[in-house]
Simulated scan of single mutants.
Amino acid sequence: MTKESPLRKIIASLQKKISVGCLDKAAIEEATKELAKLGYQYDDDRFPPLVGTENFSNNSSDSPQHLAEALLWKLGKWKAYKKFCENYAAEHPAPTKTDVVFYAFAMHLKDKNNPIYDQHAVRSLWAIFGKLTADERQKCKSLLFDTKKKWKQSGSGKSAIDCYSIFVKYVNDLVSASGGASRSELDRLLMPLGQAIKESTQTHIEFHALCGWSSSG
Rank of each mutant, 00 (worst) to 15 (best):
Glu54Ser: 14
Glu54Arg: 15
Asn55Pro: 00
Asn55Cys: 12
Asn55Phe: 08
Phe56Ile: 06
Phe56Met: 11
Ser57Tyr: 08
Ser57Gly: 00
Asn58Gly: 04
Asn58Asp: 07
Asn58Pro: 03
Asn59Asp: 04
Asn59Leu: 05
Asn59Cys: 05
Ser60Pro: 02
Ser61Arg: 15
Ser61Glu: 03
Ser61Phe: 01
Asp62Met: 11
Asp62His: 11
Asp62Ala: 12
Ser63Gln: 13
Ser63Met: 03
Ser63Tyr: 11
Ser63Thr: 15
Ser63Asp: 02
Pro64Arg: 12
Pro64Ile: 04
Pro64Asn: 09
Gln65Asn: 12
Gln65Gly: 14
His66Ile: 01
His66Leu: 01
His66Arg: 01
His66Asn: 05
His66Tyr: 07
Leu67Ile: 04
Leu67Glu: 00
Ala68Met: 02
Ala68Cys: 08
Ala68Asn: 05
Ala68Ile: 04
Glu69Lys: 13
Glu69Ala: 15
Glu69His: 11
Glu69Tyr: 01
Ala70Thr: 00
Ala70Trp: 04
Ala70Tyr: 04
Ala70Ile: 03
Ala70Gln: 10
Leu71Thr: 01
Leu71Trp: 07
Leu71Gly: 04
Leu72Phe: 05
Leu72Thr: 00
Trp73Glu: 09
Trp73His: 12
Trp73Val: 06
Lys74Ser: 07
Lys74Ile: 14
Lys74Asn: 01
Lys74Asp: 10
Leu75Asp: 05
Leu75Ala: 10
Leu75Arg: 13
Leu75Tyr: 11
Gly76Ile: 02
Gly76Ala: 10
Gly76Val: 06
Gly76Pro: 06
Gly76Ser: 07
Gly76Leu: 03
Lys77Asn: 07
Lys77Ser: 14
Lys77Gln: 12
Lys77Leu: 14
Trp78His: 11
Trp78Tyr: 14
Lys79Arg: 07
Ala80Glu: 15
Ala80Lys: 10
Ala80Ser: 14
Ala80Arg: 09
Ala80His: 11
Tyr81Cys: 02
Tyr81Pro: 10
Tyr81Leu: 13
Tyr81Asp: 07
Tyr81Phe: 14
Tyr81Arg: 06
Tyr81Met: 12
Lys82Ile: 00
Lys82Gly: 12
Lys82Phe: 08
Lys82Asp: 03
Lys83Gly: 12
Lys83Phe: 10
Lys83Asn: 13
Lys83Cys: 11
Lys83Gln: 13
Lys83Tyr: 08
Lys83Val: 02
Phe84Cys: 03
Phe84Asp: 04
Phe84Leu: 04
Phe84Ala: 15
Phe84Glu: 03
Phe84Lys: 03
Phe84Ile: 07
Cys85Pro: 03
Cys85Ala: 15
Cys85Asp: 02
Glu86Pro: 02
Glu86Cys: 05
Glu86Ala: 15
Glu86Ser: 14
Glu86Val: 09
Asn87Tyr: 12
Asn87His: 15
Asn87Lys: 02
